[in-house]
Design a protein around this nucleic acid. Structure first.
Lengths: 148, 148
DNA sequence: GTAAAAATCACCCAAAAGGATGAGGGTCTC
DNA sequence: GAGACCCTCATCCTTTTGGGTGATTTTTAC
């Protein structure tokens, strides 16, 4: 969600700049008031192109950035449990989670209550600084906590 | 290729119409020559939005597929896709899902409604014969639908 | 042009997941 | 024996997912 804002900001600035130059042009270069339509057309065309470009940028940039973090060529393998403070039990839960098990399944496999599993996972998520289990699995792999 | 042309045509017509109304407005409603900047700003904004929309319409489908092939040299995409019957759009959703995005995020990224994303994912789950998205990601990787 | 497939969106419902907080018991160390 | 962890479980509440169904539009294929 951070990129949204930077993109919007960037686009806003560009727009502002163009508007400024527009104003400038009006008083300096062209004063064809009779050819108002021409002027409008040029503006329209220009900003249409800009809009298309911005749209592409906006839509195209996000996945690329995510990919980049997702495919980490050299994962720091020994940034282990202790570095982030993940406990053995949490790691165990994490492993089962990565295998696609539901919380209930994990609870059954480890002879735990569902609530306990949820607590572990909740702690895991905050320790890995993510919000969803899918992200947790990804991050754990890049951190070397899980085999890829 | 048929839609491209219809889109272009439609866009051209819209542009023409807007230019016409622009001209009309100039002679009828607003004659604020001093507020030229305002006028230009409105045009710019309007056509920017239009441009973004047009860009999305026009080129909306391609970038995603291009990104994907660029990111991964040899994804046996077509083979496996057709084998299980996964559509391009579903694959796209699957990819974002594998990056840890929530349904809402995917909806925002693809400019879709949440319901649509849910439909795609629901179809994905049944096609992959799994019950959870974590399992779907795993299975998609073993099937070569996603890079490992 | 028609038929099939794909894409879009809606509504309903149930289950799962996630966030916050508290609490009891166990172990270990200083 | 106090403090620091860890493990366990609970409760309450919100959000997210998943399942099912139906409908409309768009695209593709023949």
């Amino acid at each position: 969600m951070k990129n949204h804002w930077s993109n919007i900001l960037f686009y806003g600035l560009t727009l502002g700049l163009l508007l400024a130059s527009l104003q400038f042009l009006q008083y300096k270069w062209v004063l064809l008031k009779s050819d108002f339509e021409w002027y409008g057309g040029i503006i329209a065309l220009l900003f249409t192109v800009l809009g298309i470009w911005a749209g592409q940028q906006w839509k195209g940039k996000k996945p690329a950035l995510v990919e980049q973090t997702a495919q980490h060529p050299f994962p720091p393998r020994d940034v282990n449990m202790t570095a982030i403070g993940i406990t053995p039990r949490e790691l165990q839960v994490l492993q089962l989670m990565a295998l696609g098990h539901s919380n209930q399944e994990i609870a059954d496999l480890l002879f735990l209550s569902l609530n306990t599993v949820k607590t572990h996972i909740s702690n895991l998520l905050s320790k890995l600084d993510v919000e969803r289990r899918t992200q947790a699995i990804l991050k754990a792999k890049t951190l070397g906590l899980l085999p890829k």
